[in-house]
Design a protein around this nucleic acid. Structure first.
Lengths: 140, 140
DNA sequence: TGTAATTATGATATTATATATTATTATACA
DNA sequence: TGTATAATAATATATAATATCATAATTACA
């Protein structure tokens, strides 16, 4: 399947844990799952894959460029399938995460880096606020 | 001293640990210290203040608005005296941190939030790159 | 297709970071 | 200065992540 080809492409052996974890991330491409979330999903699917393996595999997938690790402000990293670069907007009430890309922002970051004589390599930009979803408003 | 007045101003009792921790943060206002760093500095000054107290006090100072907690990308929070709002540029080679404020960036963040119907409350923006310091270049 | 060489995994222990508990101590204020 | 109240120290515990190592799975190739 597709996940297996991706693994081969980046030179990782195709193993059951890697395959399954990539699949889960793919299926939940709109989510931002923690290692524990992923482990729970595996357990639910009756996969006996240890949490240590989940961490190990996620690190490998990140190194290989297949997965993006996010560290928002809550002591726990989350992971998502690597898509086009983007930043995040997070609702502080309901936890909803919106992904966005803004070319003006990207340009501005370059400009700021230049100003301070920095060779920009990556950045993290996360906006925290309140979303205006009806569901969110009703529950808060 | 000044630290004590700050504590009083925000309605916190003046205690030895709070006073000392605020002082350390003030003295190192250009640094970004972890709870452990602060604890080590206290031990060096022959202060017998427990690590748990350091965490507790830092949280209180943050709540009170005297201290800013930063969570960069390394599983460990760092703290600094709260100054004017600013973002960070971090050198991935030498760890040097530059604080900056860019009004265009602030405006752009508001604009992006509006676009997605979010009431912006705060943000984190960290740029990672290579600084062009001679010291850094020589050691990498 | 079967097998050896190599790499990955599961289970567990350990480390690192942070928080909770509780008896004792310090602070603020009458 | 004495007392009510809140804070601290010294644990223990929780949470997140990594290290170890014997066993199992994968791949290359005969």
């Amino acid at each position: 399947m597709d996940s297996d080809n991706k693994l081969k492409d980046v030179g990782l052996k195709v193993t059951h844990p890697r395959s399954k974890i990539l699949e889960i991330l793919h299926t939940n491409s709109k989510s931002h799952l923690s290692a524990d979330d992923i482990h729970n999903l595996l357990v639910k699917s009756n996969e006996s894959i240890g949490l240590a393996t989940v961490y190990r595999v996620l690190t490998q997938l990140e190194m290989a460029g297949l997965v993006q690790k996010n560290q928002f402000q809550d002591n726990q990293s989350s992971y998502e399938i690597k898509k086009q670069h983007h930043d995040h907007l997070i609702c502080i009430k309901c936890g909803k995460i919106i992904e966005f890309l803004d070319s003006d922002l990207e340009k501005l970051q370059e400009k700021i880096s230049d100003k301070y004589d920095f060779k920009l390599q990556s950045h993290v930009m996360t906006l925290f606020g309140e979303c205006q979803n009806r569901d969110c408003k009703e529950n808060n």
